[in-house]
Simulated assay, not measured.
Amino acid sequence: MNLFECGIDEAGRGCIAGSMFVVGVVGDFKTLESLGVRDSKALSSKRRNALALKLLDSQEVFYYVYKASATDIDTKGLSACLKEALGEIKVYFSLTIDIKTFVFDGNCNYGVEGIKTLVKGDSLHPCIKAASILAKYYKDEESKFLDRCYPRYKLAKNKGYVTKEHVMLIKTYGLTKAHRTSYKIKSLEE
Score class of each variant (00 low, 15 high):
residue 180 R to N: 04
residue 29 F to P: 08
residue 111 G to W: 11
residue 179 H to Q: 06
residue 186 K to W: 14
residue 21 F to C: 05
residue 57 D to S: 14
residue 162 V to I: 13
residue 24 G to N: 01
residue 123 S to I: 08
residue 113 E to K: 14
residue 32 L to K: 03
residue 9 D to M: 13
residue 73 I to A: 02
residue 140 D to F: 08
residue 63 Y to A: 02
residue 1 M to K: 07
residue 12 G to S: 15
residue 80 A to F: 09
residue 5 E to G: 00
residue 2 N to K: 01
residue 190 E to A: 14
residue 5 E to S: 02
residue 20 M to I: 14
residue 88 E to I: 08
residue 10 E to N: 13
residue 181 T to V: 13
residue 20 M to C: 15
residue 20 M to P: 06
residue 188 L to V: 15
residue 136 K to Y: 06
residue 28 D to S: 06
residue 75 T to P: 04
residue 69 S to H: 04
residue 16 I to V: 14
residue 23 V to Y: 00
residue 55 L to E: 07
residue 41 K to H: 06
residue 185 I to F: 11
residue 77 G to Y: 04
residue 103 V to M: 04
residue 82 L to F: 05
residue 62 F to D: 04
residue 115 I to F: 04
residue 138 Y to D: 07
residue 116 K to T: 11
residue 8 I to K: 01
residue 142 E to S: 12
residue 61 V to W: 00
residue 141 E to S: 09
residue 73 I to R: 03
residue 155 L to I: 08
residue 129 K to Q: 11
residue 172 T to L: 15
residue 163 T to W: 02
residue 118 L to G: 02
residue 40 S to F: 00
residue 53 L to S: 14
residue 38 R to D: 10
residue 62 F to T: 01
residue 126 P to Y: 03
residue 70 A to D: 03
residue 132 S to E: 03
residue 84 E to R: 07
residue 184 K to E: 13
residue 137 Y to M: 02
residue 84 E to Q: 12
residue 116 K to S: 13
residue 91 V to K: 10
residue 29 F to M: 08
residue 45 S to H: 13
residue 5 E to F: 00
residue 104 F to A: 00
residue 160 G to S: 06
residue 137 Y to W: 11
residue 54 K to Y: 08
residue 99 I to W: 00
residue 15 C to Q: 13
residue 180 R to H: 12
residue 163 T to N: 08
residue 93 F to V: 15
residue 91 V to S: 15
residue 55 L to P: 04
residue 13 R to W: 10
residue 102 F to V: 00
residue 77 G to T: 07
residue 17 A to F: 11
residue 153 Y to K: 10
residue 26 V to I: 14
residue 148 R to N: 12
residue 80 A to P: 05
residue 64 Y to K: 04
residue 103 V to G: 01
residue 76 K to N: 08
residue 105 D to Q: 01
residue 139 K to E: 12
residue 169 L to W: 13
